[in-house]
Design a protein around this nucleic acid. Structure first.
Lengths: 234, 234
DNA sequence: AATATATTGTGAAATCCATCACAAAATATT
DNA sequence: AATATTTTGTGATGGATTTCACAATATATT
């Protein structure tokens, strides 16, 4: 009967109805941003040997509201059991699926400096659905070498190679001064989404997706909270 | 007369009334997170020779609502001129003051790997109110050297040195596996705020301020938007 | 000098997100 | 078997943030 709370979800699964772009959009951005946090927490929890977990516990450990956690997780389509909670393995899978992190996407990374290498070396990176297949740099000493099995190529080759390899994601870790130019070359190569670590706002066509990994943003919150807490003490 | 819209702000300035913790708290967190974005945008704008700027223009370039920009900037106490906008220099100063980024705070950085060095090399860093005064690492080959004029010391010395130097801010760029232990040593040294780049949730006393600079968070938004846009095309 | 235009600043309305309250469900306990 | 307990799922409520609407104001134009 339609009394099941998951009736419509079941129907979708049974008939393999594709989730449309409209539905995809429906998650609030704050919820979306919390999903990776849950993921990490759950991976830690799994390592301790747990197999089930409740939102009550997740919320306590992450200092969130249990209902909020439940609603966030519900966006991924996961179904829990009253009195028990969720199966950790299934929950992890559900989140990864929702984020599309189970399908690895190839990506180009421009800027083989410390930050670029840090990202490349970040093993858990493939867990986040991204595989860096080539590095690009302008420094002749770096070019034509390999770093962790990934070739370093000159920036001029980026656009044509991106086209040929149908790359959709570009990561920018070059200095602010060359970020705009590198971004434009990525766009010329057909790249659709750019993850920008350079402290510079990029001006690109509207249809290009840009996420700025602004260090400064979280630092603002930190310094602000610290100033508050120091004020309170004195 | 009290008809001036900024009467209370003027009064505060004239009598140097300190902003209290209560008032400090009053900015919405979303607004706080946007302030560094404005700052960067304004610094770029200044370099082009502009001296005045309107929220209309800022909003257009950053794809925000003009009223939102106006209200955000108002939290810093800035006052604009109808038909003209804001003086860029004064506006930049106003934001920096509000974030307390004009007063440099000393900080310790644990983890002299690629990511740590990337942060250290980030010249604009001092613009964000933080000065890294020592690096800590466990790798004997790195210890007792200097990187960009900053000494690299063994992690065991961190707590006692933090106490002696009254350090309040710690930055963690060690691997996830040692993040918790390093964080605890920071707390033991009296550090009050931790900026955590390790992909690991830290369990620390409630009074410690922790900001997680989660790469994964912005990546989730990116991959999600990309999946949406690819759905729409097909 | 008068009028037009662009912008600020802000109260009001609308939207979005988080939290509350509680029925339904699954297990544990008596 | 009945009762107690814990948790899920969700409609309703409350609060926070964004957007709207518009008066006030400074400059530009006629």
């Amino acid at each position: 009967m339609t009394s099941s709370p998951h009736f419509h979800i079941l129907i979708e699964k049974i008939f393999s109805i594709n989730v449309t772009a409209e539905e995809l959009k429906s998650i609030p951005e704050p919820s979306l941003r919390r999903l990776p946090v849950y993921l990490q927490y759950l991976q830690n929890a799994r390592e301790t040997g747990k197999t089930e977990i409740s939102t009550t516990l997740i919320a306590r450990d992450l200092r969130l509201d249990p209902t909020q956690v439940r609603k966030d997780l519900a966006y991924t389509g996961i179904i829990g059991k009253p009195k028990i909670g969720y199966n950790i393995d299934i929950l992890i899978n559900s989140i990864e699926d929702y984020l599309n992190w189970n399908n690895l996407s190839d990506a180009f990374l421009a800027g083989a400096g410390n930050l670029g290498l840090a990202l490349l070396g970040f093993e858990q990176f493939t867990k986040y659905g991204i595989k860096i297949v080539a590095l690009f740099d302008n420094d002749g000493r770096k070019i034509d070498r390999e770093v962790k099995g990934v070739p370093v190529l000159p920036v001029e080759k980026m656009a044509s190679l991106a086209k040929r390899m149908h790359i959709h994601i570009g990561i920018i870790t070059v200095p602010a001064s060359s970020a705009q130019s590198v971004a434009e070359q990525m766009v010329a190569g057909g790249i659709k989404a750019i993850w920008n670590f350079a402290p510079k706002m990029l001006k690109l066509p509207e249809e290009i997706i840009v996420e700025n990994a602004q260090f400064a943003t979280s630092l603002a919150v930190l310094t602000r909270k610290l100033a508050e807490s120091l004020k309170m003490v004195e």
